[in-house]
Design a protein around this nucleic acid. Structure first.
Length: 1023
RNA sequence: GCCCAGGUGGUGGAAUUGGUAUACACACACGGUUGAGGGCCGUGGCACCUUGUGCGUGCGGGUUCAAGUCCCGCCCUGGGCACCA
């Protein structure tokens, strides 16, 4: 039973719609051919103003889908709109194939990977027999490029196809090489190292989709601060403390180790005390590690370490003591006046000399002194220390770290442990040192107070301690300012200190960086635990260069960003952008011209390729070849450096051609609008800005960027590699190009995401069919003289024109389609219902208004009467002279009247007659006076000046209140003759309402009559 | 965690500077029209039983003659956080 119902409910597209789609497909094909034959979208410089719009070229590891379709259709609608507004529009397209995914796909197809084959046959609609032949990157590129071009043609985009290219073309590579030489010359490419997620087994960096576990993990950089100990037998030992908050070095009271096995290892020549895990990890982080032996941390518990930073800061307070130990040392240090220099000197004596040893001895002698207790601190045991996190050695800062405070309290309470480790009780008489002040905050010693507040009693209470840490950290990070205890950093914001201090510490020789995953474990597909590896000698784009950054930030302010709130997003991203590794070992692409071992990373080769579209025309015509593309030529045609003669000699092209390319470049550049999906904001679009600004002169920097959202499929996210996915090709084949276009433009605005729903698409096709039939029926009719109703239609249509243009200028395609299609359709429906038979008065303009969105249908209908291309016609202009407020007011009145009558009719069994009474005369008078007043109060006092109104003050005031509630309606009532409107349209009203309408007040009860208002007559229904 | 955006009917989503909340579309239901139809025309946020009144935009406060919109504090959702196109 339920099965039958379900089957019954499964709708099949009815024949009538299928036929319509078929007819549509033929129409579409026909006009695409005509456009191509007439070459109307092939753009060359002329005397018109130009508009250069680009869209990110698609990456070809699959077929284009409806997500691409959204970005492209918005671009095409804008291109067509601008073209009709009188611009010479250039709308080109290319294909992106550099990088690794295509290679990966080729491997999977070669291996006959089941999942891949399923996804590509089922979702990408690639016939299986063809798919199985796509076993090399070259074949994949060739196949999908062909398919992509076909899909883009089938939906009718107004692309200049003479400029198409793929990013592995030889001449494109020449262009990329030129670009990278330019960047190198400007010093914007630097060599360096950087951390990557790495699989020791595969010996390769691991990409997201190659992970078994830990996709959420990010790489965080711990600051390592070296504290120094001294051992009779071993000599100097470094205790590298890892922290995410380096400023806490100023509040260290002790350091923590876990009472378990550690190792002593030579790390870049120094003897380090680290966890076993850390000694392994360090090997991947540019460290030379040689493990000397395993040690038990217990051996070191209770021993002392020197904090070199504090020693440097406080040295003047213990200089006299120092004198006793080492006179020469005293001499060296005491004569340095400058604080900074002295600090460096002290640190140097600790790192390279025997000052650490002296300070420890000093501590033994005078451990009750506050100063020395800040410089020399004990090593203490704590269970909460994780040896698999960074170095396994941590600083203790009980004032600001709840864990540290809790662990310290645990120790104080536990005599057993103290005895076991032989810790002198005097060592744990520790007072927290406060480093941070928070404006208006009740906490004095945050960690201590929060621990007490949450009732934490032991370091075992991890959940509570994590919570406490979060509370303290959040407050301190955002609002905290450093106190005098931090020396020269006093007054700085906590949120700004990390980078500065990390750099300073490294600079003076006691700092280092340890990269670690934020979450663990991170496991590669092969089952091996990943590590953070620092890749050396890597080429970087120097995006952190402050000069470059500030230029980009400045230009951003000049640009148009759509929607405008994305400007803030861009601002943040620009500031956040760090140097980017731009070289790769694997993939398709161009080699770095001065270091052929490396390939240019695939996002880094897609930054200024819009300029290449201008060259591409000449290349595709065979007038420009890869071997002609010398740096002299490109310097001249793209940058105006040098002269045509020189460029001609070096390239082998004749001067005329060189000049022509240069002229065309100058005509088309800069990019007027780059329209893109929002996924590219944080990468491609930023690089696009940075590179243009680095390479081109200011007049060629991009003018505007627009960002749009994604498309989901029946509420589900689409995925190229896993499905579901709907290809553009299939969408167009099943629904027609114009239906697809209109749907995708109307589905969502700006960056909000659109959802592709089959049911809705089909229903939209129904709307389009009605539109098509309607226009066909009326278009060729003879135009008649205009009557009031026609003037209403024209007036309404003008508003649609205005709204559509305004929306298109802001790239609000949804609003534009709403105004140009749905709202006009609604008005047309009312117009026909009212008996209008002169629809043809708006049809020329209506078709033009819709042409950017549904170009094929419009072209077809247009040709019923014209033999020009509608795609090249002038877009309708808003014509204020056609706006007829009075005509609109009349229609509004009729609609309102009908609604009111119906409302009243509900309460009468079988309504037959309707009696109408208009508002009393005095109300119009009051209205007239009120219409000139700005407020209710003002109107009231004006009216009350007249005696006759004062006599009926109560009624008048009640009426006025209504008027002010509904001002707009009443504002126009002054000019309308209500009786006349109803008399003129009596036949229509009676037919629609199915009753007789009688304008006889005497039949209306007095009570009701009184309630009549201008614009809202009293209505009395008799059954 | 940080940054950005958002939360309005059954659904997608409208609402210039604060000024009639729910435009437009879809779905559903009911009624009318038609020989027939994914046609056309109505009606539908809730409550009181009606050309009206009251309540309604994630939650709790506040400013104001007036708050979806502004302020404060929460809750929730989506996206980005990098070498991946």
């Amino acid at each position: 039973m339920s099965l039958t119902i379900k089957l019954f409910k499964l709708r099949v597209m009815p024949k009538i719609m299928q036929d319509f789609i078929q007819e549509l497909r033929l129409i579409e094909k026909k006009w695409q051919d005509e456009w191509r034959k007439a070459k109307i979208f092939e753009s060359d410089p002329d005397e018109r103003p130009k508009f250069f719009i680009t869209i990110p070229y698609p990456y070809l590891n699959g077929n284009l889908h409806v997500g691409h379709c959204r970005t492209f259709t918005i671009g095409d609608a804008v291109a067509r709109y601008k073209r009709m507004c009188g611009f010479n529009v250039l709308f080109p397209m290319g294909f992106h194939v550099t990088g690794t995914p295509i290679i990966g796909l080729a491997e999977l197809i070669s291996k006959r990977d089941e999942r891949t084959i399923e996804v590509y046959t089922k979702y990408h609609d690639v016939p299986k027999e063809i798919l199985l032949t796509l076993t090399t990157p070259e074949r994949i590129v060739e196949y999908f490029a062909k398919e992509a071009e076909k899909a883009l043609r089938d939906i009718g985009y107004s692309i200049d196809w003479r400029r198409v290219f793929t990013t592995t073309d030889e001449s494109y590579q020449k262009f990329i090489e030129w670009q990278y030489w330019k960047l190198k010359e400007k010093g914007l490419i630097v060599k360096g190292s950087h951390p990557v997620r790495y699989c020791p087994n595969d010996e390769n960096p691991v990409e997201d989709h190659d992970l078994l576990m830990g996709e959420e993990a990010t790489i965080v950089d711990f600051t390592v601060i070296k504290l120094y100990s001294f051992d009779e037998e071993l000599g100097k030992i470094v205790f590298p403390c890892a922290t995410l908050r380096p400023e806490t070095i100023f509040g260290v009271t002790n350091i923590w180790v876990k009472p378990t096995k550690y190792v002593l290892a030579k790390v870049n020549g120094e003897l380090w005390f680290v966890s076993k895990e850390a000694s392994e990890k360090l090997k991947y982080q540019e460290k030379n590690v040689e493990v000397i032996r395993k040690v038990d941390a217990k051996e070191f518990v209770g021993k002392l370490v020197v904090n070199p930073i504090l020693a440097g800061m406080l040295i003047d307070k213990i200089l006299d003591d120092l004198k006793e130990f080492d006179g020469k040392l005293y001499e060296r240090i005491s004569k340095i006046e400058d604080e900074d220099e002295r600090l460096r000197a002290v640190v140097n004596e600790i790192v390279n000399g025997n000052l650490a040893q002296i300070l420890i001895d000093l501590f033994r002698k005078a451990k009750d002194r506050d100063v020395i207790r800040r410089i020399v601190v004990p090593i203490l045991p704590a269970e909460f220390v994780d040896t698999d996190n960074a170095t396994g050695v941590v600083m203790s800062v009980p004032a600001h770290a709840p864990y540290d405070y809790a662990a310290l309290e645990d120790l104080k309470k536990n005599d057993e442990i103290l005895r076991q480790f032989g810790i002198d009780r005097s060592l744990i008489e520790i007072e927290p040192i406060v480093l941070i002040r928070i404006e208006g905050e009740k906490y004095k010693v945050p960690a201590v107070e929060v621990v007490k507040e949450l009732g934490i009693e032991s370091q075992e209470q991890r959940d509570l301690l994590d919570k406490a840490t979060k509370i303290v950290y959040k407050k301190e990070f955002h609002k905290g300012v450093l106190l005098e205890t931090t020396g020269k950093y006093a007054g700085m914001q906590v949120s700004k200190i990390k980078e500065v201090l990390q750099k300073d510490l490294i600079d003076i020789g006691v700092g280092d960086v340890f990269y670690e995953f934020s979450e663990k474990p991170v496991v590669c597909r092969c089952g091996t635990k990943c590590v953070v590896k620092v890749v050396r000698d890597q080429w970087f784009l120097n995006y952190s260069n402050p000069e470059w950054k500030s230029k980009v930030l400045e230009w951003l302010e000049e640009m148009t960003i759509i929607p405008d709130y994305y400007k803030e997003e861009f601002r943040n991203k620009i500031e956040w952008l760090k140097d980017k590794a731009c070289a790769r070992r694997k993939g398709l692409g161009t080699r770095i011209p001065w270091d052929k071992e490396w390939l240019i990373e695939s996002l880094s080769d897609s930054t200024i390729y819009m300029a290449y579209y201008i060259l591409a025309k000449f290349i595709n015509e065979g007038k420009l070849k890869a071997e002609n593309m010398t740096s002299e030529l490109l310097d001249y045609v793209l940058l105006g450096i040098g002269d045509a003669e020189k460029a001609s000699r070096s390239s082998g092209l004749d001067v005329e051609t060189v000049e022509k390319i240069r002229r065309e470049f100058l005509y088309w550049y800069p990019v007027d609008l780059r329209s893109s999906g929002k996924d590219l904001v944080a990468n491609h679009l930023l690089f696009f800005l940075f590179h243009h600004i680095a390479i081109f002169p200011k007049e060629h920097w991009p003018k505007a960027i627009a960002v749009n959202g994604y498309v989901s499929l029946e509420g589900r996210k689409m995925s190229k590699s896993k499905g579901p996915l709907l290809t553009m090709k299939r969408a167009v084949a099943e629904n027609g190009a114009d239906v697809t276009r209109l749907y995708i433009l109307h589905a969502a605005e700006y960056d909000s995401d659109a959802d592709w729903r089959k049911k809705d698409v089909e229903s939209l096709a129904g709307h389009l069919r009605r539109f098509y039939n309607l226009v066909k029926e009326h278009y060729t009719k003879e135009q008649k003289e205009l009557d009031q109703l026609d003037r209403w239609l024209l007036s309404r249509f003008q508003k649609a024109v205005k709204e559509t243009r305004d929306a298109m200028e802001k790239l609000q395609t949804r609003r534009a389609v709403n105004a140009a299609f749905f709202e006009v359709m609604n008005d047309v429906r009312w117009y026909l219902r009212r008996g209008g038979d002169n629809l043809v008065v708006i049809l020329d303009d209506w078709l033009k208004l819709l042409a950017p969105f549904i170009p094929h249908i419009c072209e077809e209908l247009w040709h019923l009467k014209h033999d020009t291309f509608i795609s090249l016609e002038r877009y309708p202009e808003f014509d204020e002279s056609k706006v007829d407020e009075k005509a609109e007011a009349v229609e509004d009145y009729i609609r309102r009247f009908m609604e009111d009558v119906k409302e009243v009719m509900k309460f009468v069994e079988e309504p037959k007659e309707v009696y109408v009474a208009f508002a009393e005369e005095w109300k119009s008078e009051v209205l007239k006076i009120a219409s000139q007043a700005n407020s209710l109060k003002e109107a009231m006092s004006k009216i009350m000046k007249e005696e006759k109104f004062r006599a009926m003050a109560k009624e008048v005031s009640a009426f006025l209140k209504r008027v002010f509630k509904d001002r707009e309606m009443f504002a126009v009532m002054d000019e309308l003759n209500e009786r006349e409107i109803i008399e003129d349209n009596l036949e229509f009203l009676e037919k629609e309402l199915g009753v007789k309408i009688i304008l006889d007040e005497s039949k209306v009860p007095a009570e009701k009559r009184k309630s009549a208002m201008p614009g809202k007559p009293a209505i009395y229904v008799v059954g």
